[in-house]
């Protein structure tokens, strides 16, 4: 009984802090979303304006789904390859994947601007072998490339963590029972790495769908994402109420998506998604 009291005593300050700085702020967002920017009285004006931004929202979802799928296709072989190395090499390669995550993502994205520009590094290399300047920057492709580049480690790390845990005896058993390499992969390895795939997809999708820096730097006027719109409402447009309404929509979208992912995953361990 005393232990329970201690537990309540130790955890209450934390719970109060989290309520004050995560739940209440979300309430404030809802309050701003439901009040008129000019008069401050309750209104649905912001919610009515949301319809205008449906194409932008749709575009954000399409781009970030595309980048999550590309990350999976590129990240799976890497994670699989790392998991098959010797333990010391595994640790080293894991570090190499982590390292870019620790460096300023603003500057790294800016380096891509230098690479993709019309007079950029890639185009000057291409012109040497006689291929005319390609239009790479300010295209949807460039935005998706930026997302894939920035969030690929978030795919590789959880994938690696699940693949490395697969019991090697299962693979040997499948081989003994007559599976060839492709069958072993399709029937044993791939199904067992589903949890990693799902958490990787979520970890790429969530930051991609809400980014504003990548689309500002690598995209053009037709690749505006929902994050851009929110940022502009707060930092330039001075309509925080509309920005708040859009943030609510974004939050709901992410909750629905992670909910769907969790449903497919089946096992909802407390502790959630973490590398």
């Amino acid at each position: 009984m005393k232990k329970r009291n201690n537990a309540v005593l130790l955890s209450t300050p934390y719970l109060l802090w989290m309520v004050a700085f995560t739940l209440i702020p979300l309430g404030v967002v809802a309050y701003y979303a439901l009040t008129d920017p000019a008069t401050g009285v309750f209104s649905f004006r912001n919610l009515k304006e949301l319809g205008m931004y449906l194409p932008v929202l749709w575009q954000s979802i399409v781009y970030s789904l595309a980048s999550a799928v590309i990350c999976l296709i590129l990240g799976y072989p890497v994670a699989y390859c790392i998991a098959q190395c010797r333990p010391a090499t595994q640790k080293f390669l894991y570090m190499l994947v982590m390292l870019p995550m620790c460096m300023s993502f603003l500057l790294r994205t800016l380096a891509w601007v230098g690479l993709l520009q019309d007079t950029g590094i890639l185009n000057s290399l291409l012109s040497r072998i006689g291929i005319g300047p390609l239009k790479m920057i300010r295209t949807p492709g460039a935005v998706i490339l930026g997302m894939v580049y920035n969030y690929l480690p978030y795919m590789i790390l959880p994938l690696y963590a699940t693949i490395v845990k697969i019991d090697h005896r299962l693979i040997e058993a499948a081989e003994d029972l007559g599976c060839n390499g492709v069958q072993v992969f399709g029937r044993v390895v791939l199904p067992l790495s589903v949890p990693g795939i799902l958490s990787g997809m979520t970890m790429v999708f969530v930051p991609s769908v809400s980014t504003f820096y990548i689309s500002q730097k690598l995209g053009g006027t037709d690749t505006v994402l929902i994050g851009d719109v929110i940022e502009r409402q707060f930092k330039q447009g001075n309509n925080p109420n509309l920005g708040a309404a859009l943030s609510l929509v974004l939050m709901l979208l992410v909750f629905v998506c992670t909910g769907i992912m969790n449903c497919f995953g089946g096992d909802s361990e407390e502790g959630g998604v973490i590398v």
Binding site: V29, I230, F234, P240, G243, M251, V254, G272
Partner: peptide, 13 residues
């Protein structure tokens, strides 16, 4: 699970 931008916006508000 919340996107960073939502956390940032909500705290700033």
């Amino acid at each position: 699970t919340n996107p960073d931008i939502v956390t940032g916006v909500s705290l700033s508000l």
